[in-house]
Computed example of a mutant assay.
Amino acid sequence: MQNIDIRQLRYFLAVANERSFTRAAEQLHMTQPPLSQRIQELEVSLGLTLFERGTRPLKLTEAGKLLYERASMVMRGMQQLQVSMQNLAARKSPRFVFGLVPSTLYARLPEVIRQFREIVPQVEIGVTEMGTEEQMAALKDRRIDIGFDRIVVEDPGIRHVLARNEPLVVAVAKDHPLALQGAPVELARLCREPLIFYPSEPRPSFADLVLSAFVSHGLMPDQIQEVRELQTGLVMVAAGVGACIVPQSVRHHGRGDVAFIDIAEPISAPLLMRFRQGDTAPELRQLLTLLARLYEQWGWPIPTELARMRAASDAAVSGHVP
């Protein structure tokens, strides 16, 4: 099977929408024979018939219906991409984009982003959800400027800074026996519970961190069910389907039908910042300075590397080299 190009999809969609080769050719400003030939070439390439040619108007085959659905999505995506590029070309203000994995969304990041917007009102702030590997690629392609994640992926062009080690807790239904006993639960006890892990993909992810916590204590859960999102996991917890290990910060944004219990063993998940090695953008420097100040307000210990970076940033602003 040969690759399908955008022009072939455009020809196919025109015929499918018009239900006529003649009208589609007029719309495309071409004659009918070349259009018919292009569609036949597409069918040969796919090894599938796309139109029932004995009918008037033309009807799509099952293969044609599937291609129409997917091709329409591709073309809408191309149109959106074109609009985005046009907007970028017309934009005069700078842009700073955060990339976040879902498990970091509760770790006070909304507050960080809100205050960052206040100190850089001239900058357009973007926030996008993306997994570990996608963050790495997006940083290199300059589609994002900073990523918040749980997983370190070694790369000489990317710098990782440990922002915080966040304790993990277990979420159970409010009437679950573990919630009613009101005491920290041991990992060995949790192994006997149906456990809900998230996200199921992409990997590596927060789910791998949780599983490694069990393995490091010589344990393996009896029953694991994976879901794509944290919110799905919490809904299942509330329904009594199982228990879900989550970052401690989730308990402050929880549901009324879910209880959060401490885990007896001290297990945690790192909260990491990643950005391009050697990035000297003033917006990044301002964000790091803001983070250090917020850590002081929250009573959190400022990570050594973050404190060192803030000192270097302050020195750069004042014109002194430390």
Rank of each mutant, 00 (worst) to 15 (best):
G278S: 00
G299L: 06
A259G: 04
S216F: 05
Q297V: 12
L178G: 04
I39V: 10
V161C: 07
L195V: 04
P57V: 06
S212A: 09
C191P: 09
Y11D: 04
A89R: 15
R114Q: 04
A63Q: 10
I151P: 05
N165V: 07
L58Q: 12
E111T: 07
I39S: 10
A264G: 05
R251L: 08
I158N: 06
E265H: 01
D279P: 15
L60W: 06
F96I: 11
V321R: 11
V317D: 14
Q40L: 13
G64R: 06
R293N: 05
L291T: 00
Q82Y: 15
R10D: 02
R23N: 09
P322I: 14
P301V: 00
G54R: 14
A213M: 02
L190I: 15
R7L: 08
L271D: 05
D5Y: 05
E69F: 03
H217S: 01
R285E: 03
L66D: 12
F96S: 04
F275H: 06
F260M: 08
L287Y: 01
R95E: 08
Y106C: 02
C191T: 09
Q115L: 14
P282S: 06
A292M: 15
Q82I: 09
R76P: 02
Y11L: 06
I267M: 03
H29N: 15
D262P: 03
F96Q: 01
A137K: 02
A14V: 02
M1N: 11
L100W: 14
M78Q: 10
E26D: 15
G319A: 07
R192L: 02
V44K: 12
I245A: 11
S212E: 08
R143S: 15
P303F: 14
P202V: 10
E124T: 05
I151W: 00
L35P: 08
L13I: 01
P94T: 00
R203K: 10
Q286Y: 10
I224K: 12
A292E: 10
D141S: 04
A269R: 01
V235K: 14
Q86P: 14
D145Y: 08
V97C: 04
I4N: 12
V317T: 14
P121T: 03
I267F: 03
G240T: 13
P156D: 08
V169A: 06
G157F: 12
S103G: 00
V97N: 08
